[in-house]
Amino acid sequence: MSAEDRLALDQLTTLRLRRCGAREDVISEGEVPRDVNLILSGWACRYKQLEDGRRQILAFFLPGDICDLNVYILREMDHSVAALTPLVVGELPRDALEEVMQRHPRIAKALWWETLVNAATQREWTVSLGKRSAFERMSHLFCELFFRLRAIGFTSESQCELPLTQAELADATGLSAVHVNRTLQELRGAGLIQLKDRVLRIPDLRALKEAALFNPNYLHLDHEGRGLDANRS
């Protein structure tokens, strides 16, 4: 993007900021969406909750992610977005966002790119729930999060922050909490991960990718991202 594009984005994302505490809903199912939510810091998730309290996490949001680009078109939310950690959200007004997209074609293209990547990621999660074993499912999720965090500069060599509880991992992978615990022990025993104090360390990324049958093509990393993948894994 040009310097002008970046300036427009900076101005847009600082128009209105909102802070949320961990486990607090950014927006709940049934609410009327008015703004587009951009994650500026912290982790969040998209989820659906059944009437008996069971929850399915549908996506994780990291810094720089837009929760739903065109959500304001809907009359009401059909899902919820919640903070998993303390969160800072930029609330992008509909009119201001549409104006920026009209004036800056490269920004509009980048936003559509993100929408397509989100759809591709959702397809991959569906494959995990339908076809991958628990071992593959958890390995795949860790690979995905590591690659996404590395793309935004949030990894240090072979490790990254992972502020997710076992209950949240269960809600994301469709496993029971007991099964998640057992699967994490299997991954540790195989030497594929080290997980302690909210930090995930991957001693051998190539080995974890092979265990997960992980192909990062659905993340559609840019040229620099693909180069990092080739050099580091």
Rank of each mutant, 00 (worst) to 15 (best):
S80V: 04
S80L: 02
V81H: 06
V81G: 00
L84C: 02
T85M: 00
L87R: 00
V88Q: 08
V89N: 02
G90N: 04
G90Q: 04
G90D: 08
G90L: 06
E91F: 06
L92H: 06
L92F: 09
P93K: 00
D95V: 13
D95Y: 07
D95E: 14
L97K: 06
L97F: 09
E98H: 03
E99S: 14
E99Q: 15
E99V: 13
V100K: 10
M101C: 13
M101K: 08
Q102S: 15
Q102H: 11
R103I: 07
R103S: 15
R103W: 08
H104A: 10
H104G: 09
P105V: 11
R106M: 15
R106D: 15
I107M: 07
I107P: 01
I107R: 01
I107Q: 01
A108S: 12
L111G: 05
L111Y: 14
W112T: 12
W112C: 09
W112N: 03
W113I: 06
W113L: 10
W113M: 11
W113C: 08
E114L: 14
E114Q: 15
T115I: 06
T115E: 12
V117W: 10
N118W: 12
N118V: 02
A120L: 11
A120Y: 13
A120V: 01
T121L: 14
T121N: 09
Q122I: 04
Q122H: 09
Q122D: 13
Q122K: 05
Q122M: 08
R123W: 07
W125H: 11
W125M: 10
W125F: 11
W125N: 02
T126G: 13
V127C: 07
S128D: 12
S128V: 12
L129F: 09
G130I: 04
G130V: 06
G130W: 03
K131T: 05
R132L: 04
R132P: 02
R132I: 00
S133R: 10
A134H: 04
A134K: 04
A134Y: 01
A134N: 09
A134E: 10
F135V: 10
F135T: 09
F135L: 15
E136S: 09
R137Y: 00
R137I: 02
R137G: 03
R137L: 07
M138H: 00
M138K: 00
M138Y: 01
M138E: 05
M138T: 03
H140D: 06
H140K: 00
L141N: 01
F142N: 02
C143T: 05
C143E: 01
C143G: 04
C143L: 07
E144Q: 14
L145I: 14
F146I: 10
F146G: 03
F146K: 03
F147N: 02
R148W: 07
R148Q: 12
L149Q: 15
L149G: 03
R150W: 14
R150K: 12
R150S: 12
A151I: 10
A151C: 11
G153Q: 13
F154W: 12
F154K: 05
F154N: 07
F154Y: 11
T155D: 11
S156G: 05
S156Y: 05
E157W: 04
S158A: 11
S158E: 06
S158M: 10
S158G: 15
Q159E: 14
C160F: 07
C160M: 15
C160I: 08
